[in-house]
Design a binder for these strands. Structure first.
Lengths: 118, 118
DNA sequence: TTTGTATTTAACCAATTGGTTCAATACGTT
DNA sequence: AACGTATTGAACCAATTGGTTAAATACAAA
C-alpha cells in the first residue's frame, strides 16, 4: 500500500480522526485514548496500529505506558495532494467573478452576441 | 457514513485518485476512464459509484455516455480538515527556528542554565 | 427491427475491516 | 515472589472491499 493510500485509509475512520484530534493537544497513553469511546481497549489498540503503520503517529515507552504522539509529515503529504485541486473548488467562484465583471463592463446589447446559433 | 469518512475512504485508493486526476482536466466517459487501467469496465464503474456516493464527482447523460465531472466541494472539506493540523507539521521548523534564534541571541554561558537538575 | 456501443447489475470470490472476548506479556510495587 | 496495571496478541465473527465474468439495460444508427 503506497503512502497516500495508507494515509487516506487511516483518516477514513471517525474514531481514528478523533484520536488524532486528541493527540494534537499532546501525548496520550492508550488508556487515556480509550476513555472517550464506547469501545474496548484492543479495538483502540488496532486503530493505533493503523495510525502507526501510516506513520501518522509514533509511540514511545514509559514503564507500562505506550505514549502516542502525532506526526505531521504524512498530514502534510495529504494536504499537498489535496491542494493540487484547489483550483477545482475555487473555479466556481472564478466563473461567478468573471460573470459579475462581464455584466458590469458590457452593456446589455453587447451581451446578446453570446446566444448560441444566432 | 459521515461525509469526511466517505471522502477519505474514496481517496484511499490509487485507481480512484487517478480517476480524479484525469477528471481535473475535464469531463470523461466511463470508457475513456477505463482505458488507462488494466481493469474491467465494471470495476471502474464501481469505483465511480464510490466517488459519486462521496460526491467527489457528478454524472451527466449524453446518449449512451455517462460523462463524469469532478466536484470541488468535498475536496475543499477534506482540505479544511487537514489544514487544522498545519501547525503540527510546521512545529518542527518552528522549534528549529526558535533554537537557531536562541543560539544566535545568547552567549554560550547563558545557555548552560538549560541543563536539567542543575 | 436488428445491430452495435456504452454502461450497469448480478452473482460470485478471496482478502480485509472493525469489532468482540479471553489469554498473554511487560513492567512497577509490595 | 505475587499482585495490579497497561498493553498487545489470538481467535473469532459479520460486513465490506475490490476484483472477476456473464447477463441485462439504454440508446443510436442502419
Amino acid at each position: 500500500m503506497d503512502r497516500l493510500t495508507a494515509t487516506f485509509h487511516a483518516l477514513a475512520d471517525p474514531t481514528r480522526r478523533a484520536i488524532l484530534a486528541r493527540l494534537s493537544s499532546g501525548t496520550a497513553s492508550v488508556t487515556e485514548l480509550t476513555k472517550p469511546f464506547a469501545m474496548s481497549m484492543p479495538a483502540i489498540s488496532k486503530h493505533l496500529k493503523v495510525l502507526e503503520r501510516a506513520q501518522l503517529i509514533t509511540r514511545g515507552r514509559d514503564a507500562q505506558l505506550r505514549p502516542c504522539n502525532l506526526e505531521g509529515a504524512r498530514l502534510k503529504e495529504a494536504s499537498d495532494w489535496v491542494e493540487q485541486y484547489r483550483h477545482i473548488w475555487e473555479a466556481r467562484f472564478d466563473r461567478l467573478d468573471a460573470y459579475l465583471k462581464e455584466i458590469q463592463a458590457k452593456p446589455a446589447a453587447a451581451r446578446k452576441t453570446k446566444k448560441r446559433k444566432p
